[in-house]
Amino acid sequence: MLLTQADIDGAVGDLSGVMRRTPMIASRTLSERIGCDVWLKCENLQRTGSFKPRGAYLRISRLTPEERVRGVVAASAGNHAQGVAWSATQLGITARVYMPTGAALPKIAATKAYGAEVVLEGTTVDEALVAARRYAEETGAVLIHPFDHLDIVAGQATVGVEILEQLPDVDAIVVPLGGGGLLAGILAAVKPRRPDVTVVGVQAAEAAAWPRSLAQGHPIAVTAMNTIADGIAVARPGDIPFAHVSRFVDAVVTVNEESLSTALLLMLERAKLVVEPAGVAGVAAIMSGAVDLSGRVCVVASGGNIDPLLLSHVSTHGLTAAGRFLTVSATVSDRPGGLIALLELLRDLGTNVVDVVHSRVANGLELDEVAVTVSVETRGPEHQREVCGALSEAGFLRE
């Protein structure tokens, strides 16, 4: 159940010249914010936009000629789907991918563009995986599991190999955690060579199967998940990843949705990197204080495939969480100049008005009053407090 050094060396050799050696980028913003030397391992810049092709290509490339003829099948919310589709096409093998009905449209389109047949089934990756297993049993197609296979974990281990080569004096590595293939691979590559390196897995709090599983000593499925980080929304840890994680990991922590959106916004604004919610879980962990580290820290940005519509929504949520976007409900006089007085005050306070909704029929209004919901851009939490205080003092806000 555990990778050997020979397994990892073999993966490095087989993937050489196929996978990109993704960059390791220093982040001054994160370093200053958390007080240690932070570097980003940019797997969002890997082929197909995530680390997934490492394991998918390795697994598919090792199929026998008889297996290749039968084709491959997979289940994924998007990143593994694209990794399998791209890898199978590169190797001249047919691929079918089952995706949840709610999968992001750009991920569905990309998977098709990479050459796979896409079938939408189920509402979660786990339900799609049931359909993929059934198809494999009926047709003989080889199931390419997203994380629960030694070749998959070995492929992901090459990320850990690169981290040690690019940042040889690394003190800690923070890794997004879903089914566990990436974390297991990094642990297998790093811990035998550098047992002193702290390795931390990060889950979305609304899809966190690992903490309870580790406490009980075996994989346990969660019954419900609700997170923007669809790439790590996996109900049950894989058996093979669990064997590695339970033996080697130093800690597994969780982050909430607000932390994920704030981290995504920071990556866009300051690092100039497009990273999906699952991919910023590690950044969210160090920004929110979910994990306390020191020295030289590598955070893996595991993927960058995000629906533009979700990006817009998450960016707005992140701006709100960061104190950069404020919506207030004010009451103004239903007389000429009533609304202007509110807007002029907001102007004088240095805000930028984004949206105004004007209503005469809101509950609790007097005959000569109007309810106004106004959204403004602000400079941060302190500025928001200043704005709210001034609006309250001027009589626009009611208790």
Results as ranks from 00 to 15, higher is better:
residue 2 L to V: 14
residue 3 L to D: 05
residue 4 T to Q: 12
residue 10 G to K: 06
residue 12 V to E: 10
residue 23 P to R: 01
residue 24 M to K: 07
residue 25 I to G: 03
residue 26 A to L: 10
residue 28 R to C: 08
residue 31 S to M: 11
residue 32 E to W: 11
residue 40 L to V: 05
residue 41 K to N: 04
residue 44 N to R: 06
residue 45 L to F: 14
residue 47 R to S: 12
residue 47 R to N: 12
residue 55 G to V: 01
residue 55 G to R: 01
residue 56 A to W: 00
residue 62 R to D: 01
residue 68 R to I: 02
residue 70 R to C: 08
residue 72 V to P: 03
residue 86 W to C: 04
residue 88 A to G: 02
residue 90 Q to P: 10
residue 96 R to T: 15
residue 112 K to Q: 14
residue 114 Y to T: 05
residue 121 E to K: 15
residue 124 T to L: 12
residue 130 V to H: 03
residue 136 A to M: 13
residue 140 G to W: 15
residue 150 L to M: 08
residue 151 D to G: 04
residue 157 A to T: 02
residue 159 V to P: 02
residue 165 E to G: 06
residue 175 V to D: 03
residue 181 G to Y: 03
residue 185 G to E: 01
residue 185 G to R: 00
residue 191 K to R: 09
residue 194 R to T: 07
residue 195 P to V: 08
residue 197 V to M: 09
residue 204 A to P: 08
residue 204 A to R: 06
residue 206 E to R: 15
residue 210 W to E: 04
residue 213 S to L: 07
residue 223 T to V: 13
residue 224 A to R: 15
residue 226 N to K: 12
residue 231 G to F: 05
residue 234 V to K: 09
residue 238 G to A: 06
residue 239 D to S: 14
residue 240 I to S: 04
residue 249 V to S: 03
residue 252 V to M: 02
residue 257 E to G: 07
residue 264 L to P: 07
residue 264 L to Y: 08
residue 272 K to N: 05
residue 273 L to H: 01
residue 274 V to N: 05
residue 278 A to H: 06
residue 290 A to T: 10
residue 291 V to D: 02
residue 294 S to M: 06
residue 297 V to H: 07
residue 301 A to C: 14
residue 306 I to N: 06
residue 308 P to N: 09
residue 309 L to Y: 12
residue 312 S to Q: 12
residue 316 T to V: 15
residue 318 G to T: 02
residue 326 L to H: 00
residue 328 V to I: 07
residue 333 S to L: 08
residue 341 A to E: 06
residue 344 E to S: 15
residue 351 T to R: 00
residue 352 N to I: 09
residue 362 A to V: 14
residue 363 N to M: 14
residue 363 N to V: 15
residue 363 N to W: 13
residue 371 A to I: 11
residue 371 A to N: 13
residue 387 V to Y: 01
residue 388 C to Y: 00
